[in-house]
C-alpha cells in the first residue's frame, strides 16, 4: 500500500494545484518549490485553470500492472494555458479524433486502485476534449 504517497499528492492530483513564482510570476506544475526560470524559491500555491491543448499523444495497449484493466487508453502531453506541460491521460475521447493542438480541459477521474480491489482508490487529473 502506498497510502501516504497518494495522500501527500492529493491537491496536485485532484485539482491541478501547482505553484507560482513570487519573483517572476512563472506558473509551475508539477510543483517543485524552486522556480525553473529564475531559480528563486516558489512555494506559493496556484490552482491551474485546467485549460490547455494537446502537445503530443499516443495510445497505450500494453499497460503497466495496475492499469491493464483500463487499456487501451490515450496519454498526452498537455500544454496548459498558463504555460507548463503536463503528462496526463485523455478521457472520454475517441482515439482517432485526437489531434495535436486539440483544446482540452481537466477533469478529475479515477486513476487506479492501490494494489487490488481492497486497496484505496486513487483519483487525479485527466483531460478531455473541451467544448
Amino acid at each position: 500500500m502506498e497510502i501516504a504517497r497518494h495522500w501527500r499528492l492529493k491537491q496536485q492530483r485532484y485539482g491541478l494545484v501547482g505553484e507560482v513564482c513570487p519573483h517572476c510570476d512563472v506558473k509551475i506544475f508539477p510543483p517543485r518549490d524552486v522556480c525553473p526560470e529564475c531559480g528563486g524559491e516558489a512555494k506559493t500555491l496556484y490552482t491551474f485553470s485546467g485549460k490547455g491543448e494537446v502537445y503530443s499523444y499516443t495510445t497505450i495497449y500494453e499497460a503497466p500492472a495496475g492499469y491493464d484493466e483500463t487499456a487501451p487508453y490515450t496519454v498526452a502531453l498537455v500544454k496548459l494555458e498558463e504555460g507548463p506541460l503536463v503528462t496526463a491521460q485523455l478521457t472520454d475521447v475517441d482515439e482517432e479524433s485526437v489531434q495535436i493542438g486539440m483544446p482540452v480541459e481537466m477533469v478529475t477521474r479515477k486513476l487506479r486502485q492501490d494494489g487490488d480491489e481492497r486497496g484505496m482508490l486513487v483519483y487525479g487529473y485527466k483531460f478531455r476534449k473541451s467544448t
Partner: peptide, 9 residues
Amino acid sequence: DFEAMQGMT
C-alpha cells in the same frame, strides 16, 4: 508521481 501515475510507459 507525475508520469508513471498516469499509466505512462
